[in-house]
Design a protein around this nucleic acid. Sequence first.
DNA 1: TCAGGATAGTACTAATTAGTACTAATGATA
DNA 2: TATCATTAGTACTAATTAGTACTATCCTGA
Lengths: 158, 158
Amino acid sequence: MRRYGAFLIAQMHQVSGRIFSRMLKNHDIETISPAQGRILFALWSSDDIPIHELAEKTSLKKTTLTTMLDALQASGHIIRVPSGADRRKIHIRLTDKDKQLRETYSQVSAAMASLCYEGFSEEEIELFEGSLKKILANLKRFESGKDAPARSRRGKTQ
Amino acid sequence: MRRYGAFLIAQMHQVSGRIFSRMLKNHDIETISPAQGRILFALWSSDDIPIHELAEKTSLKKTTLTTMLDALQASGHIIRVPSGADRRKIHIRLTDKDKQLRETYSQVSAAMASLCYEGFSEEEIELFEGSLKKILANLKRFESGKDAPARSRRGKTQ
DNA sequence: TCAGGATAGTACTAATTAGTACTAATGATA
DNA sequence: TATCATTAGTACTAATTAGTACTATCCTGA
């Protein structure tokens, strides 16, 4: 039985990224790209967190985030705040700047969603997103734990 | 009702890409990356096609393919053949080189699939992949036709 | 208390992807 | 049949992402 999962997902990611990017432009959001949007989106639900935690939430590697956060900081959307307790840690904090952004971004997200789910019943959507979450959990568990059968179990983060 | 679809899909793409890439390495496929693999995968089901058709099948833009095909040609996996009929067209044709590759690649794909779908019933998988295809179709229809309500309808390809 | 390992973050490089702008060839129509 | 839009493909640039290698800090146990 041949499965196409990863192949289809890669395609969806590409196409939806292109569309989303164009939609943002049409809403005069020139400053934010889809990739940056995803990072802000994660911050909107839990602000003021260290980078490695943001990496966990976005499934991006911390090296990726360093670059992206540089850009978001330069455009004034976030600031880096040293965490008093642990001097290695730096907290990422949203600024006032994206208060307006947030509203528009939600609208575009909603438009994206209704485009994706055209012809779906509520139930189908629930099922589908449930499966997505399950798969993502499978993948993350594998990646972090390496799903090692019994050996070592040191849980290397990177 | 808030939907997470695109956010989840982006994450899946990232994580699965990292895992897939590592799996390929573990199977001593150093020459082929996941992205190149997806292109070859598309060719395996329909060889000897022009670039714009390959773009359709992979959901990649033709500019992307130009670059990727350069690499695949350099490593000897494909050749570019002028299409006699229309002198603008160039057909992409597989070489003998990936006869062996194909076997290993299928194994890795299968491993990926069973990892993704761990804990799924056959029925759930069918449903899920069905939904994926439906969403992808929605997105592609929108992107190519621009889903324009009634106006012009010129169907710009790019 | 201090030595070794783990953790937080960054710099640098490379791969993947798309957009803009181009050339060459084809087709449609006036 | 001359013109003009369309189509096929490419060059160049820029954004996103991750890997490797590094520094600084923290924690643990001998």
